[in-house]
Amino acid sequence: MLELNNIKKSYDGVPVLKDICLKVNDGEIISILGPSGCGKTTLLNLILGIVDADDGQILYHGEDLTHVPMEKRGFNIVFQDYALFPNLNVYKNITYGLKNKPNVSSKEEVEELIDLLGLREHLSKRIDQLSGGQKQRVALARTMVMKPRILLLDEPLSALDGVIKESIKERIKTIAREYNLTTIIVTHDPEEALTLSDRVLIINQGTISQYAKPEEIVHKPKNDFVKRFILNQLEIKRNNIYALFGDNTRLAVETGGVSLL
């Protein structure tokens, strides 16, 4: 279990995270959701270990990681822009970490990952020959080879389009399930967050607005912010889709009593 206790962080005197308390269970997929500038990326960087908290504690299975440097925490991240090494081909990117820790994954495990992520046919390609979705899967494979204790994903879907988005979503879920891997995802898209994760952490202006299961957020939004910024978007989408499919019943907006029209 990952635990954050009273985490505080400010930049140049401006508080970015105020008193964040949070528990994540093993094998859970968590999404951190919020508008730009709400502090979600800072929170991710804090967990990863590239940013130090001003105050508070980070515990993993009871072990205090607050002052443990990034490379010793055993967490790993896939960046939004993948940060693949352009001078290495797909296979060499995937197996990059094995140079340092040859025994972390066996040959079979690597092969299994390659198949699971559908990368077999691309192994000898250069990075710039790949599409966005393929790059995302390579970056995911490269990280998974290291068997991270926690997998962090920074906006994993934002650079992808339609169908590929859904397929990557499924892959992330499969991986988390197969490896019982705690996964923390940063996103600004409510639909992504609510359909991908077991629990969603909604952040607004450096504080936790709501931290709950998707159903609970939809049916019992805790405050006005959740209603207006998170649910509103989903309802517009829903209505658009209903309208598109000709079902004009206009299930307008009972949830939370917010009026759309």
């Binding site: 790993n76 991240i77 960046f79 822009d81 940060a83 990059y96 970490g97 820790k101 490269r142 290291m146």
Partner: peptide, 27 residues
């Protein structure tokens, strides 16, 4: 140069020298 490769390289367990090579010198 993508500065995030520095973090990836560290997270992959590279030593300072290897990180310097893959994320700075090689590109």
């Amino acid at each position: 140069i993508d500065k995030k490769t520095l973090i990836v390289s560290k997270a992959m367990g590279d030593h300072t020298v290897s990180t310097f090579w893959i994320a700075v010198l090689r590109p």
